[in-house]
Design a protein around this nucleic acid. Structure first.
Lengths: 206, 206
DNA sequence: GTCTATAGAGTGATAGAC
DNA sequence: GTCTATCACTCTATAGAC
């Protein structure tokens, strides 16, 4: 990717976040960049190509982040790992806020997103399994309970930012999102797990 | 509201659901109705006026439904009450799927929606309080736990349909949504509450 | 109330000079 | 690679006849 192409993608993300994906025209973007419309469409012939490039960059950053956090999912690590994930969601917030519109208009992106969500649910499910086997979390009391929990946690992570916006809240949502997630999990912790959690509480703000 | 105006609103909801709010033009709508564009804009001068009328109809139906279900929130009633609520969300699904786009473009609707969500959270919180006082649910073990739970349940109800769509699921989401909600609550039920829940399970499918 | 016709302001995308 | 100029099309909204 050339330097200009990279600048275009980065600026597009900023404008999409500010105004919403459908409300940013190629003209707006060219003006913001201080380049001509012709130049912009030289680099990205169609708006489709641009959104595809932006989505690819999101996926790349997401993968880089997931590699960096493949640590043992202890209680402390889970709490720490949520922050970069939520930061990523905020950096590309237009994608999550306008996700229905993007997925309707770009089926190829929709398919990749289905896959990502399925992976995310599996990943959360694996963390739950680990927490049970390491004695921090109780075994489930109903069949399917923890499959459902993994899906609910994934739903919360995906839509917390949307909800925050819909409710008219401003400012950072990280603390609220983490608090909400922990409040789901705390009743399911064992004594040992609850002790570990209190330790995390003391050392870092939840 | 005249007969034609009513027809316009109803057809608009159908098209918005099918194609997404931003993707339905006044022309599309006029053609679908078999009337001229001029006639359509005679009834609703601006697209803004149309979306306002659609939203008003959603609010009216929502209020009618809430009045009908103001029963004692027993475990069985809670389960039964979820169905008409989820059906309403599906009937106006475009509004929930495209909610960010609608709220960005129509601040007046955004404000009414903030209010509605706040009411919804308070209503869920009241049900939790009732359940605790009637001995079906345990008292909270951490301050703020049930405030957070009420918000999470509201988030789930609001976005379950979006998540269902994003994950590429088809068909009814009612059962999944109810199951997910109960899986959050079951660990917090008392023995008495769990008994009541099992009773519901036996009589109706959850 | 309903129609046809059109104004007026966008939009994505392209052609061709430099 | 970058520019200017423009095409071909879409949209909302309005004017005026019936």
């Amino acid at each position: 990717m050339t330097d200009t192409a990279k600048r275009i993608v980065d600026t597009a993300v900023i404008l999409f976040n500010q105004r919403g994906f459908v409300n940013v025209t190629m003209r707006d973007l060219a003006q913001e960049l201080g380049i001509s419309l012709g130049n912009l469409t030289y680099h990205f012939k169609r708006k489709d190509d641009l959104i595809a490039a932006v989505h690819q960059q999101l996926i790349d950053e997401r993968n880089a982040m997931l590699e960096a956090v493949q640590l043992t999912p202890s209680i402390a690590n889970i709490n720490a790992q949520m922050l970069p994930l939520l930061e990523l969601y905020e950096r590309y917030r237009f994608f999550y806020l306008d996700i229905m519109e993007v997925m309707r208009s770009y089926p190829a992106i929709a398919e990749r997103q289905h896959e990502h969500i399925a992976n995310q649910v599996r990943y959360i499910r694996a963390i739950i399994d680990y927490s049970v086997s390491s004695g921090n979390m109780r075994p489930e009391i109903r069949a399917g309970q923890y499959d459902s929990l993994a899906e609910t946690v994934c739903l919360m992570l995906t839509f917390y930012l949307s909800q925050h916006t819909i409710r008219g809240r401003e400012g950072s949502f990280y603390d609220d999102a983490r608090k909400a997630m922990w409040n789901l999990v705390i009743p399911l912790l064992t004594e040992k797990g609850r002790g570990a959690f209190e330790g995390v509480l003391k050392s870092v703000k939840v």
